[in-house]
């Protein structure tokens, strides 16, 4: 399976990539290529030009600054998963990245490419949403920052403009008694999420819930934020029965996706189970 023909350009800086995007209509950015190349081989995508940003060193790596952590867009999943900074201060992102594909895929696939592609069955979108992450974008008009909650617009569609480059993902460092968990029910062959649950649970000193967040991959076209479940947990002592009841009473997912692997209603049932497991795991780690 060969991709259709395209012109190939290699950008040595983000500015050059933006300039090339402006010069070549409908061009696509190539990072790790692990979403784009499969789509091109199936001729689902036939961009006339590819702009290879894969060698721009400034876009790679994890840095921390004043309670927040910035992950360069070209950081591959294996490096996100293995990052000491993320493992200790934002373990949810590391755990979600360790769930992407397999070890070969994690060696090449990038966090920026993953989020820009916005595959609903991927592992990272719900984690970034549950963390309240921010997407950094750079275009001809300068930089802008978009909250994860506003970034994912629809199936494979984001707020990233055609002449912009996604440069980094910013997530807050966890503080206090906070635990996180990402658990997924995956398709056994592809590893894609039929349902992936990302949970963040913060506890007060007396053990009651100070704050929570629960988001899903794989169930809806964009990552689903189960804010009603999270709200129902705040102030409560989180024993198993309380978590089960909060999920049963408050998890409502409109328009779940259905396909040949799993119907929409089935995914919602799986989401209930994984919500409970993820919230309990996050509580235990807090």
């Amino acid at each position: 399976m060969y991709p259709a023909k395209f012109d190939y350009y290699r950008a040595s800086s983000v500015q050059e990539a933006i300039q090339l995007l402006q010069e070549h209509e409908d061009a696509k950015l190539l990072a790790g290529g692990h979403s784009l190349i499969p789509a091109m081989k199936l001729r689902l995508a036939q961009p006339p030009a590819l702009i290879d940003i894969g060698r721009i060193a400034e876009l790679r790596g994890v840095t921390q600054d004043n309670g927040s952590i910035k992950v360069g867009a070209l950081t591959v999943h294996a490096d996100v998963a293995a990052s000491d900074v993320l493992q200790s201060q934002c373990p949810l992102l590391a755990e979600a990245a360790s769930n992407v594909g397999d070890r070969q895929v994690r060696h090449k696939g990038t966090i920026g490419g993953n989020l820009a592609h916005a595959d609903p069955a991927s592992d990272l979108p719900a984690a970034v949403l549950a963390l309240g992450g921010t997407i950094h974008l750079l275009g001809p008009g300068g930089s802008r920052q978009v909250a994860a909650a506003d970034f994912f617009l629809d199936l494979l569609a984001t707020d990233l403009h055609e002449d912009e480059v996604l440069t980094a993902i910013e997530v807050p460092a966890i503080s206090g008694k906070t635990g996180t968990a990402y658990l997924k029910f995956e398709h056994p062959a592809s590893g894609y999420a039929l349902c992936g649950a990302a949970a963040v649970v913060s506890l007060n000193d007396d053990g009651t819930c100070a704050g929570a967040s629960l988001c899903f991959n794989g169930v809806t076209a964009t990552p689903h934020n189960a804010s009603a479940v999270a709200a129902a947990l705040v102030g409560k002592t989180l024993d198993d029965a309380t978590i089960d009841q909060a999920v049963n009473a408050n998890l409502s997912i409109a328009d779940p996706m259905g396909d040949m692997y799993a119907s929409g209603p089935y995914r919602v049932e799986v989401a209930k189970t994984y919500a409970k497991r993820a919230l309990k795991a996050a509580r235990d780690r807090a």
Partner: peptide
């Protein structure tokens, strides 16, 4: 699967130019 710069990679999902 091959090793590219020491890491296992699926060579059907990389362009040779990469």
């Amino acid at each position: 699967t091959i090793l590219m710069d020491g890491q296992a990679v699926k060579s059907c999902t990389q362009l040779a130019v990469q």
